[in-house]
Simulated assay, not measured.
Amino acid sequence: MEYAPDEVGSMYRTLSGAVVPRPIAWVSSTSADGVDNLAPYSFFNVVSVEPPTVMFSPLDTDERSKDTTRNVRETEEFVVNVVTGESVEAMNETSATLRADESEFEHAGVTRVESERVRPPRVAESPVNFECSLYDTLRVGDSVLVVGEVEYVHVDDALAPDGELDVRELDAVGRLAGSFYSYTRDRFSLERPP
């Protein structure tokens, strides 16, 4: 199978099926009116270490604007919560389509915890949380790239027995395509060449 992007209706299945597994940003935000929102985004990654920045990219058109995007634009704050095997079902529940005045925290039975530096709450069920201020946005086609500077980090002590996050202790979940996800439990190590 070979084709140019303009020869097919959408590249979504190819991109989301080949770029796997993708980490999931479980983004909590708060509207200007004080309504907390929680939604997962699998177009997510690290941007830079200095300054520490992360990005996620939601669909954002006139017909399909996300509450998260609007909240981040209005308040310039959000929290990225890491999804694990224990929280994956709740994360899936927060992808339901709710009215803007309804909170996914209540809908999915997710526990709020007050953040240290930003207004949006973090997810208690997540062992790693990045409190972020808006660094910049960039429109890319029908999506918007949201870049956040990490202002404060929470890591469950069980994941950092020696004072640094040990990836072997983090039961992160990644997004594949369609309704498929993956665990990061099956790991291997390769030494980087000099």
Results as ranks from 00 to 15, higher is better:
Gly109Thr: 13
Tyr135Pro: 00
Pro193Leu: 11
Glu76Ser: 15
Val153Leu: 14
Leu159Asp: 09
Ala172Cys: 06
Thr97Leu: 00
Pro194Arg: 15
Ala90Gln: 06
Val72His: 07
Val82Gln: 07
His154Asn: 07
Leu38His: 03
Pro52Tyr: 01
Arg73Tyr: 02
Pro193Asn: 14
Gly141Tyr: 13
Ser179Val: 14
Ser31Ile: 15
Asp136Gly: 13
Ser103Ala: 12
Ala96Phe: 06
Ala160Ile: 02
Val54Trp: 05
Asn45Lys: 15
Phe180Leu: 07
Asn45Val: 09
Ala18Asn: 15
Ser10Pro: 01
Pro194Trp: 14
Ser10Asp: 04
Pro194Ala: 13
Thr137His: 03
Tyr152His: 15
Glu116Gln: 12
Arg99Leu: 06
Tyr183Asn: 06
Glu89Ala: 13
Arg139Thr: 12
Glu76Ile: 06
Ser28His: 00
Val155Met: 13
Glu131Ala: 05
Glu131Arg: 09
Val20Leu: 11
Leu98Ser: 07
Val153Trp: 00
Val8Gly: 03
Val27Phe: 00
Leu170Ser: 10
Thr14Gly: 01
Glu86Lys: 12
Asn92Cys: 06
Val35Trp: 07
Cys132Ser: 11
Ala124Met: 05
Pro21Tyr: 06
Arg175Met: 09
Pro193Cys: 12
Gly17Pro: 10
Asn129Val: 01
Lys66Ala: 00
Val88Arg: 07
Glu7Lys: 10
Ser87Thr: 06
Tyr183His: 15
Asp101Val: 04
Glu106Leu: 10
Thr111Asn: 05
Val144His: 06
Leu138Tyr: 10
Thr61Ser: 13
Leu38Met: 05
Val150Leu: 02
Phe78Ala: 03
Ser95Asp: 01
Tyr12Phe: 14
Ser103Trp: 07
Glu106Phe: 13
Val173Phe: 01
Phe130Ile: 02
Leu170Cys: 03
Val123Tyr: 04
Glu169Pro: 01
Ser10Trp: 13
Ser16Ile: 15
Asp6Leu: 09
Gly148Ile: 00
Ser31Thr: 12
Asp36Phe: 03
Asp142Arg: 14
Glu125Arg: 01
His154Trp: 08
Ser29Ile: 01
Pro5Tyr: 11
Asp162Val: 02
Val113Cys: 07
Val173Gln: 08
Arg168Ala: 12
Arg175Glu: 07
Ser16Arg: 08
Leu98Lys: 06
Thr84Gly: 05
Asp186Thr: 11
Asn92Gln: 14
Gly174Cys: 03
Pro52Asn: 09
Val8His: 07
Ala25Met: 01
Arg187Trp: 13
Ala158Gln: 12
Ala177Lys: 04
Arg112Val: 03
Phe44Thr: 00
Leu38Phe: 02
Ser95Asn: 10
Phe105Gly: 01
Pro120Lys: 01
Val47Phe: 11
Glu149Tyr: 01
Gly163Ile: 08
Cys132Asn: 04
Ser87Phe: 09
Glu116Ile: 07
Glu89Trp: 02
Val144Phe: 04
Ala32Arg: 15
Leu134Phe: 05
